[in-house]
Design a binder for these strands. Structure first.
Lengths: 254, 254
DNA sequence: AAGTGGTCTAGACCACAGG
DNA sequence: CTGTGGTCTAGACCACTTC
């Protein structure tokens, strides 16, 4: 029953872990090349002298590490040569992602339909001339007098029905779109950059023209990467810090 | 063998999925309260008329969704009442996290030992008077003449042995610390804010004093949240954008 | 000592992909 | 058709927690 042995194992490990470690070694050494097939479960059972369950448990580990994928009727395909340490940031909701306290509210000062100009195409991932609903306003936190940000929201014309829902309820716009049109967000892309706050925006935010601001651009995407909303938020430097934290997913695995 | 039936199931589902769904319902309805114990595996086997393996597979799913945790000798503890839609950002390496191309190099212009002042305590999460190795310099990408960022790195005095390794190899400092001292990074915290680039820094980056900059502060933490390194990077606004993307982890699960 | 989850075996049938 | 991984059973022993 014990077809293989580890010499001087560091403590006792379950055999599925030993099988996994052995396979990880063989993959990282290149013995099992990327894009090639791992031996079948049956072969691995024989090779390591363990039951199929144990082999499957080992391979499950490899799968969780992103080293292999599996396909019924095909086999186990090696996808990556090394057990990369992954760092992940995970958040429970879009709200967490925004990092706005629950009470922040957007006070819209302008709502209008525009046609995308050339300069907007990159931002909105669309062709020039497409129609969008644009909402501009300030975002306040609680009862603060100074706004947290100047916000410009771009909404594809097919969702423009949410126009009159924006404001009163204080509900986030992406939620309005999800509810009203039965869409749901599958991905959020965010670009963070520094900008100089000038003109109308400086006035609206009550800062000296030319002061630095943190600009967060968020694209909310639905299924098939359909754009549901694009939001541009400009925060005066001293009023907002974006914090994030990444954790390692796995232990070093020997 | 078929202790329970689903009326008009949407397509055929494996029974572990049905068991999982049933448990998810009971948890979200509050039948199994948060912080209470789920029935034992044996009880669930009887209740659903399936084998232990099937029950374990179902509970594994709940565990992956963060609904429960398990403890040998104790049981399965309900941790969350609802299958939250989580948004995650995952990256393969710290390098990805930094978003610096592989070729960026830090050209150090100053290395010195300092004592933490009061104003540094927050940044470094330490007490005033602690000794740190501080490395200042510019970060260049490829053969560009203009630096990508002005970097200040704070290293706890106990890792100051890396001092003379910084520079020549071009290796990231966190890697040097990991290698030289057998530490490994378990978490990276990052704060992003906008700043005004002035004085020495403006000069070093060749920008007009007062121009906006993107300031990224990274704290590299080891086991027990021990600080391994703190890096402050200031990027001229037009030379750097931090991009990130979050994906939903699970489907709505009916 | 009793009961929990963690590991493991030996067997089985199924759905799917490929020749 | 053959062989793959996906699911499932019945049973076993172990390590751990609690009483």
């Amino acid at each position: 029953m014990e077809g293989f042995k580890e010499t001087a194992v560091v403590g006792k490990q379950p055999s599925y872990a030993l099988v996994a470690q052995s396979l990880i070694n063989d993959i990282s050494s290149g013995f099992y090349a990327v894009n090639s097939l791992l031996p079948t479960e049956f072969d691995l059972c024989k090779q390591f002298g363990v039951s199929r369950h144990t082999v499957r448990e080992a391979i499950r580990k490899l799968k969780e590490m992103g080293l292999v994928t599996r396909q019924q009727g095909v086999g186990t395909i090696v996808k990556s040569s090394k057990a990369i340490t992954r760092y992940t940031q995970s958040m429970g909701s879009v709200q967490d992602l925004l990092q706005y306290a629950q009470e922040t509210k957007l006070r819209a000062v302008k709502k209008e339909i525009i046609e995308a100009t050339d300069s907007m195409c990159t931002l909105l991932k669309c062709k020039a001339g497409e129609k969008w609903l644009v909402v501009e306003g300030n975002r306040y936190i609680g009862e603060e007098k100074l706004p947290l940000a100047f916000t410009t929201v771009y909404i594809p014309i097919r969702y423009s029905g949410v126009k009159d829902l924006i404001g009163p309820s204080g509900e986030p716009i992406y939620l309005l779109i999800e509810k009203s049109y039965g869409e749901h967000i599958t991905e959020v892309q965010q670009d963070i950059s520094a900008v100089s706050i000038t003109g109308k925006m400086a006035n609206s935010l009550s800062v000296t023209p030319g002061s630095p601001g943190l600009c967060l651009i968020r694209r909310y995407l639905g299924v098939n990467d359909k754009v549901l909303e694009v939001a541009v938020n400009v925060h005066p430097a001293e009023r907002f810090v974006y914090s994030m934290s990444f954790r390692r997913e796995w232990e070093t695995e020997g």
